[in-house]
Design a binder for these strands. Structure first.
Lengths: 217, 217
DNA sequence: ATAATATGAAAAAAATTTTGATAATTGAAA
DNA sequence: TTTCAATTATCAAAATTTTTTTCATATTAT
């Protein structure tokens, strides 16, 4: 069960919202207007923090800054006015904000988004960088246009560097379990990867068995 | 001009690399092996930090932790061995690492990626959330499958809430300047958006002129 | 030597975008 | 207010583009 910490600056968040989040399987803790008592390192035991900034004050910025620096996702609940300073601070991490009035479901969406979001899924192999968050592959600083199947296959290879992948395994993981393919499909895509990413000597063929991406030296 | 701070743990980074980064329009500052003197809050005046961990030591972890908490993107330069603790810390933010030996251009790519990466481009309209970073649109917590043209058009609309967009403007911004289209194309896509996103009453038609997305009430 | 894989082009399939025919709506003029 | 011409909405079909698969042949490996 994910834990949410709600920090109230002045007015309390509505009980409705708290109930709603609890119904949606979040464990809720609340700190009421007691900024002095916050132990910032303890914040790390929460999965996400909702900071309810009812009335905007200078000291709020300070507090927000400290929280954000802890690296926990924060969603700031703002009262009508959007403050540029706040937005700037929020950019230093996996954060978000929402302006009143908002729908409970919107808040939930944003919470879910922040928690789901693995914003650091990156891989590297030689001169190739895979930003799996955005599904973009770079080779030598430049985007490489991989097709869906190529991308999926490459991700499978790179997640299994030095592990041989049988054709059967590749088939089921990239194309799906019940798919029947003629023999050339997998190796065509292997060729494409070798060509597009300059991996002629890195994707190894094991005759009759399958393929693997060998470890960089 | 973006500022890079290079922090050296022991051996110096090659002059070649420094020169190369300078050639690429970065302002470089270097701290040599003087961790005690680091003023962590001052780090915030840099856009990105390169931490050159030549020999891995316990105190390095401590320092890295502090830097990461400042929220500035860090790229750790590791000497051969990848340390799991380091990777874990790096995940608390917009960070990265690179292992020696590496190509100058690879380092540059990673620097650019970290800086460019606006991982906070989000828009919201009613029950719709647009994660422009990943080009995903959610309605009521669920992904909506927008096609490219639909997505582009919607982004244009949402970036111009309450501003009337002439068809000519839409055409040039979504389809390109020199494109000749028959009359139904734009409005077909408008209909698709209205349908897929439930915006029948929100996307307003101005006869003979164009369209706009009206401000939420 | 034989079977398997590589290669490149062609075919097929899938997805996306545009268009055309018709219906509904709008707005200006009578 | 009604009418009519023009514009937009709607939906399905056509066209286009992109992606994926397959086939024929060459190459390579066992």
């Amino acid at each position: 069960m994910k834990k949410i910490l709600i920090i109230e600056s002045k007015k309390n968040i509505s009980k409705q919202i708290v109930d709603f989040l609890q119904e949606n399987n979040y464990e809720i803790h609340i700190i009421y207007n007691e900024f002095e008592k916050i132990n910032y390192t303890e914040l790390n035991s929460y999965d996400i923090i909702l900071l309810n900034l009812e009335v905007f004050q200078e000291k709020d910025i300070e507090i927000l800054n400290k929280i954000v620096k802890e690296g926990i996702p924060v969603i700031v609940i703002l009262d009508k006015v959007i403050d540029d300073n706040i937005i700037k601070i929020l950019k230093n991490g996996n954060n978000d904000y929402i302006v009143k009035p908002f729908k409970k479901t919107d808040l939930l969406t944003r919470i879910n988004l922040r928690l789901k979001q693995d914003f650091y899924e990156m891989y590297q192999y030689k001169n190739i960088i895979i930003d799996a968050t955005k599904k973009i592959v770079y080779k030598d600083n430049k985007k490489v246009g991989l097709r869906l199947k190529e991308y999926q296959l490459f991700l499978l290879l790179i997640k299994n560097v030095d592990n041989i992948l049988s054709k059967r395994e590749i088939l089921s993981k990239v194309w799906g379990i019940n798919v029947e393919l003629k023999t050339r499909t997998i190796d065509y895509h292997i060729q494409q990867l070798r060509k597009k990413l300059d991996l002629k000597n890195d994707i190894i063929t094991i005759s009759k068995i399958g393929y693997y991406l060998r470890k960089e030296k």
